[in-house]
Amino acid sequence: MHGNTVDSPTAVGVADVVKVHGRGDTAVRALDQVSLDFPAHRFTAIMGPSGAGKSTLVHCLAGLDTVDAGRVRIGRTDLTGLSDAALTRLRRDRVGFVFQSFNLLPTITAEENVLLGLRLAGRRPDRAWFDTVVDALGLRPRLRHKPGELSGGQQQRVACARALVGRPDVVFADEPTGSLDSRSGAGVLGFLRTSVRELGQTVVMVTHDPVAASYADHGVLLADGRVAAHLPRPTADAVLTALAGLGA
């Protein structure tokens, strides 16, 4: 437990997680005995250089990938050992995603994309919450457009709305600003922070951008598949210094 999160219950956690990519001579330990807890209602940034295991960690946390050893938990649910169908249900009911490359379905409108997860789950959207999310993201005038007619920043905001509209236990964002210019990126990051502070969401974000990390409440630095450092209330400078320290 970390000093500033003792008061918060943990939303997501991993314990002694190992994940190996490849086998034999080419095997890489992407995650090597990682143990971490992510507090609820907080915005956590996972940082680190390329190949540090950031994305792998998030994929394992979100039930998109399985671990080779250790435990992964969302709320009280242990993900290791769940069947594919149970994992699928967990993803659609309790987890939200924002990807670097938006990942919207090109064939349907922005509104349908936002509601896609609920549709897949057969759940009825909470209209008031939908309106709150859509208005907070400024998507109202764009709901009837298809993804191809939206700018990158707008597409990523649609993806954010899709992640939040189901009121998940946790939202995972994998390099959400990686494909955006700095202004659009700032808009998305600001919204993620707002969703934590004002809407009470839990967000775990992977980024290699120190500026993006500075929006978070807490930073975790990964290097070579291990936790290298914790950065409470990270600033861009602090992150840069920490990253530079890894190289040393």
């Binding site: 979100a62 998109l64 594919d84 169908a85 699928t88 249900r89 993803r91 659609r92 009911d93 995603f97 990807f99 990942n103 379905l105 896609l116 997860g117 897949l120 789950a121 899709r162």
Partner: peptide
């Protein structure tokens, strides 16, 4: 492939 993976990530079952 990517789109199918996305749908699966969002909660579409294999059967679906």
């Amino acid at each position: 492939t990517r789109e199918s993976a996305l749908l699966r990530a969002l909660g579409l079952t294999r059967g679906g």
